[in-house]
Nucleic acid binder design. Structure first.
Lengths: 146, 146
DNA sequence: TCCTAATCGTTCAGTTCCTGAATTATATGG
DNA sequence: CCATATAATTCAGGAACTGAACGATTAGGA
């Protein structure tokens, strides 16, 4: 019988820490009328990886119908423009507006504050190690990277 | 204007990776009739930090009514025994059974498998660095540690 | 050229997970 | 003892998400 402690497992700790972080992130975004997934959508748009709503849904691992409501909200805030693709008129193309880019920068600033809070009592070496490994994992597992 | 990329932020990456991990964890637990929060409750019980349902709720940052249903399920599986505290008969004391301990070990094994999967392409140094920093963060931020 | 099948966005009903308010049982302190 | 506080429970409801159905558009044969 393998005798591993659940709490000292990477999966468990990433899960718990991740939940804490997205909750804090969510609290900050609320002031701007956004939820974490809105920020996720903005990220996808900025990356240019996908513009049609279906592609975005696949990239975000989310139902297409959810992208609709996320996009509705962002359009409402003027962060995103919806345009029919003239080549294939079934497709809706989402484009970041200037306000959208600003909003994304605001989200990034909020996240940076959380980072500072999180690594408060960490040595600079530890912080850099964490940043580096998380970057590697993000790349290896198909998550949005730089 | 601060020019941080949201995707390269620790908060964002921990959130995303954490979501991926708990989803995978959830998928494995499903085979045993459990959800991640059930595992969380088992962890709390094993730690001995809290036995009354209200204390458990506080520790888990969750509504007391949720603990009721989590405990219901675990009792159903024979993983937990509910006993009225004879000193204060309002309190329900939750105690891990042998089956509960076994179930917890099963969860830990599943998480360990996920760890292996996650760190597949990481060097042993990186893996150890990650484990160490996450341990530190868990301790600093009041999350369950060993 | 039609006609059928596929694709995209959208709507909407339903599921899941969780919270907060009421309820019951018990304890505690003037 | 009585008023008030506390523990567990039940239950209605909210937030977030999914999946099925639909309308509009496109594509690919015969």
């Amino acid at each position: 019988m393998n005798d591993v402690k659940l709490t000292s497992t990477l999966a468990f700790r990433l899960g718990t820490l991740g939940a804490v972080m997205t909750e804090r992130f969510s609290a900050r975004l609320a002031a701007h009328g956004l939820k974490p997934k809105h920020a996720g959508l903005l990220v996808v748009l900025e990356s240019g990886t996908a513009t049609s709503q279906l592609d975005i849904a696949k990239l975000m691992n989310v139902a297409p119908s959810l992208v609709v409501s996320l996009a509705d909200r962002l359009e409402e805030l003027g962060a995103v423009r919806r345009e029919r693709d003239p080549v294939d008129r079934r497709r809706q193309t989402l484009a970041l507006t200037r306000e959208g880019r600003e909003l994304l920068a605001t989200c990034a600033a909020a996240a940076a504050e959380l980072d500072a809070e999180l690594t408060d009592e960490l040595g600079p070496g530890e912080t850099e190690a964490l940043r580096s490994v998380l970057g590697t994992l993000a790349r290896r597992h198909g998550l949005p990277a730089d």
